[in-house]
Amino acid sequence: MNKTDRLLAIVIELQRKGVLRAEDLAGRFETSVRTIYRDMQALSEMGVPVAGAPGVGYSLMEGYFLPPVSFTAKEATALLIGADFVELRLDAEFGTSARSSQEKIEVILPEHVREEAARLRSAIRLLSDRTAVTRGEEKAAFEQVRRAIVQKRKIRFRYSKNLPGPDGSRHSERTADPYGLVFSQGAWVLVALCDLRGDIRHFRLSRMNELTVLEASFEVPPGFNLRDRRSADDRNVIVRMLVDPAVADLVQGSDNFYMETFEPGEEGWLATFRVRQIEELLQWTLGWGAAVRVLEPASLRDRMRAEIDNMRKRY
Score class of each variant (00 low, 15 high):
Val133His: 11
Arg207Ala: 03
Gln41Ala: 14
Phe85Asp: 02
Ser44Tyr: 14
Leu196Cys: 05
Lys74Trp: 15
Asp129Leu: 08
Gly268Glu: 11
Leu80Ala: 04
Glu143Tyr: 06
Arg174Phe: 10
Asp244Asn: 10
Glu106Val: 07
Leu66Glu: 13
Asn236Met: 13
Ala78Asn: 01
Val237His: 01
Gln151Tyr: 09
Val48Arg: 00
Arg274Pro: 05
Lys152Pro: 01
Tyr37Asp: 15
Glu260Ser: 14
Leu214His: 12
Lys161Arg: 14
Leu7Pro: 10
Gln277Ala: 05
Val292His: 03
Leu270Ala: 06
Gly168His: 06
Glu23Gln: 11
Tyr315Asn: 03
Glu143Gln: 14
Lys161Gly: 12
Glu296Gly: 04
Pro54Leu: 02
Ala51Ile: 04
Asn256His: 15
Arg121His: 10
Gly289Asn: 04
Ala290Thr: 12
Ser128Trp: 06
Gln41Pro: 03
Ala26Pro: 08
Ser101Trp: 01
Gln144Gly: 09
Ala9His: 00
Val182Met: 12
Asn209Lys: 04
Met311Glu: 00
Ser32His: 12
Arg153Gly: 03
Val275Pro: 04
Glu307Thr: 07
Ala216Thr: 14
Asp84Ser: 08
Asn2His: 11
Gly136Trp: 15
Ala42Tyr: 07
Leu90Val: 00
Arg119Trp: 13
Leu190Phe: 01
Gly57Tyr: 01
Ile149Phe: 06
Arg146Asp: 09
Pro68Tyr: 06
Glu279Thr: 02
Val56Tyr: 09
Leu8Lys: 15
Asn2Tyr: 01
Leu295Arg: 15
Asn236Leu: 13
Arg293Lys: 15
Asp249Phe: 07
His202Ala: 11
Pro49Phe: 13
Arg274His: 10
Asp39Thr: 05
Leu211Pro: 04
Ile81Gly: 00
Gly165Cys: 05
Ile155Tyr: 06
Glu13Arg: 12
Pro245Ile: 00
Phe94Trp: 11
Val56Ala: 06
Ser70His: 15
Ala83Gln: 07
Ala26Ile: 05
Ala76Asp: 02
Asp129Cys: 04
Ala216Gly: 10
Leu282Trp: 01
Gly27Tyr: 10
Val86Gln: 00
Cys194Trp: 11
Ile308Gln: 08
Val239Glu: 00
Thr131Gln: 13
Arg28Asn: 03
Arg89Leu: 02
Cys194Lys: 12
Gly47Ala: 09
Ala140Trp: 15
Ile200Met: 05
Lys152Ala: 03
Pro222Ala: 06
Phe257Trp: 10
Gln277Ile: 08
Ala176Val: 00
Ala271Asp: 07
Ala22Asn: 09
Met304Asn: 11
Asp302Met: 12
Leu90Gln: 05
Arg174Gly: 06
Arg204Lys: 14
Val56Asp: 02
Lys17Asn: 14
Cys194Pro: 07
Ala76Tyr: 07
Arg99Met: 03
Ala291Cys: 09
Pro67Gly: 15
Tyr37Ser: 13
Gln151Lys: 10
